[in-house]
Nucleic acid binder design. Structure first.
Lengths: 165, 165
DNA sequence: GCAGAACCGTATGGTGCCATACATTCTGAT
DNA sequence: ATCAGAATGTATGGCACCATACGGTTCTGC
C-alpha cells in the first residue's frame, strides 16, 4: 500500500536512471545474499574469479576490472589476504607493483562460487532472454561512454534555461 | 593493455550483472557531478521532486520510493530540513508519522533540478533510443521481481545443483 | 647521469548506505 | 479496559566506496 501507482508510467521523479541505480543496488544485495555462505561479496568473488582465470595481476589492473578505485581495491585485497585466499608478491622487474595471486584455498572457494553463481544466474535471469542481456550489455557500454563524456566535461554554471543550442 | 579481451564474449568473471552495478554507480556519479551546482545528489533531488509533485508524504513512503531504508531516509531528510528545503509536520491522526512537505525554497530548487535534469538526459541518452530505454525499464522491473524472490527465499545451503524445481 | 613527469600502492578523512535494536504509538483481540 | 503485535521514526555501529595527498619507484628528455 502507498506504493507507487502503476498508472503513472514514467513520472518525472521516477526516471529510468534512478530505477537503474536502485535496481543495481538490489541485484548486488541479492548476490551478496546468496554468497553469504562462503562469506564473500560480489566484488570479492569477481576479483577472485578473475585472478583464478587470468593468473597474477597488479592491483591497478584489478581495480579497473572490478570498476572501483585503487584505494578501495587495496583494502579489499587486504581482507582477502588475511583470510589466505590471495597472496601479494613483488613484481620481478618493477618494485612498485605487487602482483596478486590466488592460493589453493582461494581457488577452492572460486569453485564454490561458480556453483552458487550458476544457481543465481538461473534465478536472476528468469524471464530474461539471452538476447536481452546482450542488448543490456551493449546499452551499458554506450551509457558508460556518455557518462565518461559528462564526467570529463565541466559544469556549465547554471546558465539557466539550459544549453538550448 | 590488460583490458578485457573482446573475444571473450561473456567470461565467467565479467558478468552482465557486474557491469550493471559498476555502470549504475558511474551513472550516479555523473548525475551528482551535474547536480553539484545546486548541492544535491540524485536521491535528494529525486525525493524533493517526489514531494513537490505528490505533496506531503510519510518518511516510510519516501524510503520506498527512493529505494533505500528508513534509517537512511531519516538522516537524508535531516539534512534537507536543516537547509530549509522541506519541513516535518505531525500527522493529524497518527502521532507516529511525520509528514514531509516541501518549502518554497525547496520548490525553487526543484525547478533548477528539472532544468539540469533535462540537459543531463540529452547527454546520457545520446545514442540510446526511446525504445531501448523502455526496454531497459521493463527489464529492470523483471530483474527486480527476481531479486525480491531471491532475497525472500532462504539460502538452500550449498545444495549444489541449485533449486531445480 | 639527472631533474621532472608518470605510475603504483597506501594512508587519511568523509559520505552514504545498511542492519539491528529501541521508544513511541496505533490496532485489534479478548 | 487491557495487552500483544505491528508500524513509524530514531540511534548506533559497521561497511564499502570515493577523493585527495603522499612516499617510493620507474621512465623520459635533456
Amino acid at each position: 500500500m502507498a506504493t507507487v501507482d502503476q498508472t503513472h508510467a514514467a513520472p518525472s521523479w521516477r526516471r529510468v536512471e534512478i530505477a537503474l541505480i536502485a535496481g543495481a543496488r538490489k541485484v548486488a544485495a541479492a548476490f551478496d545474499h546468496r554468497l553469504a555462505p562462503i562469506d564473500l561479496n560480489l566484488n570479492q568473488a569477481s576479483l577472485l574469479a578473475f585472478v583464478n582465470d587470468f593468473g597474477e595481476s597488479s592491483q591497478t589492473e584489478l581495480a579497473e576490472m572490478v570498476g572501483i578505485g585503487r584505494a578501495s581495491i587495496g583494502s579489499m585485497i587486504d581482507r582477502l589476504e588475511v583470510r589466505g585466499l590471495v597472496t601479494r608478491n613483488p613484481h620481478p622487474n618493477d618494485r612498485r607493483v605487487r602482483l596478486v595471486n590466488i592460493t589453493l584455498d582461494g581457488a577452492a572457494l572460486v569453485e564454490k562460487f561458480y556453483e552458487i553463481d550458476a544457481g543465481f544466474q538461473r534465478e536472476i535471469r528468469r524471464e530474461i532472454s539471452r538476447e536481452e542481456r546482450q542488448h543490456l550489455a551493449s546499452l551499458l557500454e554506450r551509457l558508460g561512454a556518455n557518462v565518461d563524456a559528462i564526467l570529463s566535461s565541466p559544469n556549465i554554471n547554471q546558465e539557466r534555461g539550459g544549453p538550448h543550442a
